[in-house]
Amino acid sequence: MAIYHFPDTLFLAGCGNMAGPMLTRWLECGLDPARVTVYRPSAAPVADGVRVTAQWPESLPDGTMVLLGMKPYQLGDVARHITSIDGSDFRLVSILAGTGMQSLRANFPHFDNIVRVMPNTPVGVGQGVCALYADERTSAAVRDEVQALMQPLGLAEWIADEGQFNLVTALSGCGPAYVFRFIDALAGAAARLGLPADQAARLALATVRGASTLAISADVAPGVLADRVASPGGMTRQGLNVLDKDEHLLNLLTETLRAARDRGEEMEKEV
């Protein structure tokens, strides 16, 4: 069983659709709930043993890891409250989409250690992707702490150029939605051609799960695996010819990622 390293104190500003599954996974992997405080206006409970408050705390222990898990438009108001909390050397982790380091620095001018993280929804089952970025003001020790915190969630990779962060978000952050849509379309196409819809859905899910597992364990690229399955003149090759014609699938996904990336850049300007 893996041994994970968690911060002594973790404070979550918000615990919604992304921060919630992250916290659930951390607790499953051994995070002591007594170390966690969650601020949410509703004060609705999140997990046994986790303190939830509808009031901003007056103080937090030095070195607390603070996770921004609310909506991006709430940044200014939340920053005003967090910067008034007594304590020092807080580590700030932001999972806010479309909110760049420049904006975070402007809202938290006295925080040296800030890390941007873009997780995706499979983090809740430990199969997620977390893209991380920090600038030169963030210490190497804090980078290591944040890396360790993301380890139970899946793959954690640092992005060297923040200018690529929205593209990475489009790929791995938005990517699960595109995969879900593909699975749905694969099943829908089979149903349209005559299979019972429930059977088509089961077969599509199992096919994608098996193919993904094989691709992860293989020592060659997924494109090579595709060609290995596709015998000349066979059924698979005939289908691939449709996807590959004029780079149709590649062009479609390029436009998909471009649209998501561009929206991220627009959101940064709005923030």
Rank of each mutant, 00 (worst) to 15 (best):
Q74L: 14
Q74Y: 09
L75Y: 04
L75I: 09
V78Y: 02
A79Y: 02
R80I: 04
R80A: 15
T83H: 10
T83I: 12
T83N: 13
T83E: 12
S84V: 03
I85Y: 04
G87H: 02
S88M: 07
F90I: 01
F90M: 01
R91I: 13
L92V: 08
L92F: 05
V93D: 00
S94I: 01
G98H: 02
G100T: 11
Q102A: 15
Q102K: 13
L104E: 01
R105G: 05
A106M: 10
F111E: 05
F111R: 01
V115F: 04
V115N: 01
R116G: 04
N120V: 03
T121A: 15
V125G: 11
Y133G: 00
Y133V: 06
D135Q: 06
E136A: 15
S139K: 05
A141K: 12
R143K: 15
R143G: 11
D144F: 08
D144K: 13
V146E: 01
V146W: 00
A148F: 05
A148Q: 14
M150C: 15
P152D: 01
L153I: 07
L153R: 04
L153N: 00
W158S: 07
I159V: 15
D161Y: 06
G163L: 05
Q164T: 08
F165S: 00
N166I: 02
S172F: 08
C174D: 06
G175C: 12
G175H: 07
A177N: 10
Y178M: 12
F180T: 12
R181W: 10
I183K: 06
D184T: 13
A185C: 11
G188S: 10
G188Q: 03
A191Y: 03
A197Y: 04
D198R: 12
Q199E: 12
A200C: 08
A200V: 08
A200R: 04
A201K: 13
L203N: 09
V208T: 11
